[in-house]
Design a protein around this nucleic acid. Structure first.
Lengths: 225, 225
DNA sequence: CGGATTGTTGATTACTTTCAACAATGGTGG
DNA sequence: CCACCATTGTTGAAAGTAATCAACAATCCG
């Protein structure tokens, strides 16, 4: 799910109408954001309810954004990897918590700084718009996945998202089964069983619990389509 | 679900950082978009794959955006009512279809026009950004609903969304049970049963299938929380 | 090596879907 | 105005999927 997004951010934007605004994608953060911040695995980047002063660009590692229901169940909204920008939220308070799935390095982009950048040239504003749109696209796709798909289909789609970020057909999962379950709206047992079933049917091989070899990518695509 | 959003769009934006940009919310569409377009009930506004040239502001009526899975199941992404702006998508093609749930009146906002507006003053760009952010917020909340909630919880949350758009505690549903089912990731039978259960427990009264009286709003809030 | 965490597997339960029949509603034409 | 027909909505019974409860295995650290 990860690098594909990062590539998109760096490449010329596919939307012709807004394309011109996206050419020098790297300018905004370089201009306003100095050195990277480091977070240890499982540490909090910000909490739900914190004052939202920044967006964040992931330099390395993986981040999850999450929220809890009243009955204490966790919902993971998204995972972010190198190149992704997260922290887009309405209002002055974060509606989600952000946590480091792995140890990670982030560059903070101050909102006010971004606003001033936007005031100086509309390229920055359009860039922010594009980041937000990309998040929107992901959120919508995820809604469809959660609303209309079986456990097996969710797992297949998830593996394809992950594979897009890795090298070749080997997937190294940075997150726990609990993370996956809370992202896909399943339980850890169902995640485990779905993976076992995929392995039994020869679609994947579990070299370890976190290291997955994709043997039949087409089958995954057929399942998740 | 509807008017609450429309109110937010008209009111000063809660995000202090971007607030200044949101003050004269109605300017952009008035400037570039002349008279309203009318669509009959169940007619198509645009189809998945169509070239995306416009955003649309709903003047009256209700619109749904939807998409189909490979196996033919429909997923409704969102409903839009008066004041809402829809059609925010990445790329030059619509990824969703938009259809008139009721007969409705829309004002088209040409993307290129909006872009030129954005180039002239950053207020327009920020306004677009704000619309996109609001869609993002809704999509995320919907993901959480679909991923972590039971049928009863989904129905309770849906009724509260709808109630926000109606007068008092009477909800007139503009959409069919199939629409509701495809929005909540359920079947029409489960939607029907969930409503029947809510009525039996005294939380609502079904005056007709489409006209619902909320008797115990607190109970709905407790369920959906 | 030992203990805690993480992941897997089995049995049972609960919830939602599916299949089926029926009821209510709304629009149309006689 | 009423009857008819198509659409929409409801309800029941059976089946299927995922959740829950429980035990165990593997892995990771110190």
């Amino acid at each position: 799910m990860f690098a594909s997004l990062a590539q998109n951010l760096a490449a010329p934007h596919p939307n012709a109408i807004f394309a011109a605004a996206f050419v020098n994608t790297a300018d905004l953060p370089r201009r306003v954001a100095p050195p990277a911040m480091h977070f240890a695995q499982d540490s909090s980047i910000y909490e739900e309810g914190d004052t939202a002063t920044c967006f964040y660009r992931v330099v390395s590692g993986v981040v999850r954004t999450c929220r809890f229901t009243a009955d204490g169940r966790r919902h993971i909204d998204a995972f972010y990897a190198a190149g992704d920008v997260f922290g887009f939220e309405i209002g002055t308070e974060h509606g989600f918590s952000a946590e480091a799935v792995t140890s990670c390095a982030l560059v903070a982009i101050r909102r006010r700084g971004a606003e001033e950048g936007a005031a100086r040239d509309e390229g920055s504003a359009m860039q922010l718009f594009g980041y937000a749109m990309r998040q929107l696209e992901r959120a919508r796709a995820h809604s469809q996945l959660l609303g209309r798909c079986s456990a097996a289909q969710k797992m297949a789609a998830f593996l394809l998202e992950c594979e897009a970020g890795g090298a070749g057909s080997t997937i190294e999962l940075p997150m726990t089964r609990q993370d996956i379950a809370d992202y896909l709206g399943l339980t850890i047992e169902t995640v485990s069983r779905s993976l076992a079933q995929l392995e039994k049917s020869g679609v994947i091989t579990l070299r370890t619990a976190r290291l997955i070899l994709v043997r039949n990518r087409g089958a995954l695509q057929d399942m998740s389509a």
